[in-house]
Amino acid sequence: MKRLFPILLVAVLVAAAVFEAGCASNSAGKLQVAGSTSVQPHAEVLARAFQQNNSGTRVYVQGGGSSAGIQAVGEGTAAIGMSSRAVKASEIATYPTLKPVAIAVDGIAMIVNPKNPVNNLTMNQTRDIFTGNITNWNQVGGSDATINVINREQGSGTRDGVQTIVLKGGNFAGGIVLSSTGAIRTAVSQDVNAIGYISSAEVDSSVKAVNIDGAAPTYDNIANRSYKIQRDFFFVTKGDPSGLASQFINFTLGAGGQALLKADGLVSISDAQNASMTTSATK
């Protein structure tokens, strides 16, 4: 009896280790991709196509957020990290060999209810709405009603994007917090006075994307950078990608991968003006 417990424990640990190794291993035709929930659905599309082209390979795509994805790559538990923001200096400091590569451009649409008469906002108005300086729709040409601000949670790449691009690093004030694109779209579609932000690829007819500084979040406007609220999506690797990871990234950046991303609502990195220099990271 007394001897059984340590044996069991060892057995469990061994099993766990084997399982872990199996998951992280790339050489056995398996690829771990983890990170931003904004990038995740697009990566899943890429993964399906990639698996069809390369029978016997498996690409596992997990969410968790940009930070978690980058950390996972740094720690070696994932081969590719998905990020909806540039890699931070602090992350480079911890994992000096991180290599980001931009794979597409995504606009962040400011969405309101279709019944809301407001169609245009300036960047400054948008900032003031999210910092709590503008609280009534009539201050931006709408009807007399309190603006119901809907935010993403701390740590979300989309929230990060808005904070960096729109708030210029200032802080959000007021509003509620919802934890997914779908939840925000649903809430805005139900609430005439709401405003929220989601990836422009995810905008559908249940909500209305407003123009920012006169530009709508269309493909062309995002590609030519006239729609300002936009960010690049990155794949991050530890050191230069190799093996399956390298194949997957090349597929993504190639014509086939880019066409898929485009069909998915993103702006192809090859169409984007002055695409990030980090693209040179791939061979």
Binding site: G63, A68, E153, Q154, G155, I176, V177, S179
Partner: peptide, 20 residues
């Protein structure tokens, strides 16, 4: 609206690193 300890932990855990 209101936030609770559990909801806040769940919301942010996925992204949190370091001091967070």
């Amino acid at each position: 609206p209101v936030s609770t300890l559990t909801a806040q932990i769940a919301l942010e855990m996925g992204y949190a690193a370091g001091a967070h």
